[in-house]
C-alpha cells in the first residue's frame, strides 16, 4: 500500500509526514512524528487520553485518520507550554497533585485548555461535564477539578 504524504501544522509548526491511509492521527503523531505525549488508552474515543485540538475543536486523535490532517492545525500536549514556561494549567496540576500515574494527564490538559479557551469562568459542574470525556482511574477527579478551577481563576487575574 502506498504511503500518503501529509502536510499539516502541529503546535504552530509546519510538519510533513508519511502515513498509511488507514493510520490514525494518533498513530501518526506517536509513531511517525515521535510526539508520544498524546497517549492511547482505548482506541475507540472513550477515554480521552489522545485528546488534541484539531482545527480549533477538541477531538480524540484515535478517531481521526492521519490523512485528514492535510492542511489542518493540530495542537497537542507538547504545545501547551510556551517559551520554557509551563501553562498555568500545568503548574496547577503539579502544585495541587492533580496527577498520580500521569497517563491521562496530557489528555486532561488539552481538554481543560480547550475548555478555558472558550469559557474562562466555568462552574465546577461545567468543568466536570467538559472533562467527562477524559477518564482518570487514579485521582477520583477531585484534585483535577480543583486545579482547573484554580487555573481559570489565575488566568482571569483573580489569583
Amino acid at each position: 500500500m502506498a504511503r500518503r504524504h501529509v502536510s499539516t501544522t502541529i503546535n504552530g509548526e509546519a510538519v510533513d509526514f508519511l502515513c498509511e491511509p488507514h493510520q490514525t492521527l494518533l498513530d501518526a503523531l506517536r509513531d511517525e512524528l515521535q510526539l508520544t505525549g498524546t497517549k492511547e488508552g482505548c482506541g475507540t474515543g472513550d477515554c480521552g487520553a489522545c485528546s488534541v485540538v484539531f482545527d480549533g475543536r477538541l477531538c480524540c486523535s484515535c478517531l481521526i485518520l492521519a490523512p485528514e490532517a492535510e492542511g489542518a492545525e493540530v495542537e497537542t500536549v507538547e504545545g501547551i507550554a510556551t517559551g520554557g514556561e509551563l501553562h498555568p494549567l500545568q503548574r496547577h496540576f503539579l502544585e495541587e497533585a492533580a496527577l498520580q500515574c500521569g497517563i491521562c494527564t496530557p489528555g486532561f490538559l488539552v481538554a481543560a485548555k480547550a475548555l478555558l479557551d472558550s469559557n474562562p469562568d466555568p462552574s465546577e459542574t461545567e468543568v466536570r461535564f467538559a472533562l467527562a470525556g477524559n477518564l482518570c482511574r487514579c485521582t477520583g477527579y477531585d484534585k483535577i477539578i480543583r486545579a482547573v478551577l484554580d487555573s481559570a481563576a489565575e488566568l482571569r487575574g483573580e489569583a
Partner: peptide, 23 residues
C-alpha cells in the same frame, strides 16, 4: 509538606516515557 513531585514536569509536558512510548 506538599512539594511538587520530582517527576512532575515531564508528566505535564508529555515527555515522560510510558510503556508504549519506547521505540
Amino acid at each position: 509538606t506538599r512539594p511538587v513531585r520530582p517527576d512532575g514536569v515531564d508528566k505535564v509536558r508529555g515527555r515522560a516515557n510510558y510503556g508504549a512510548d519506547h521505540a
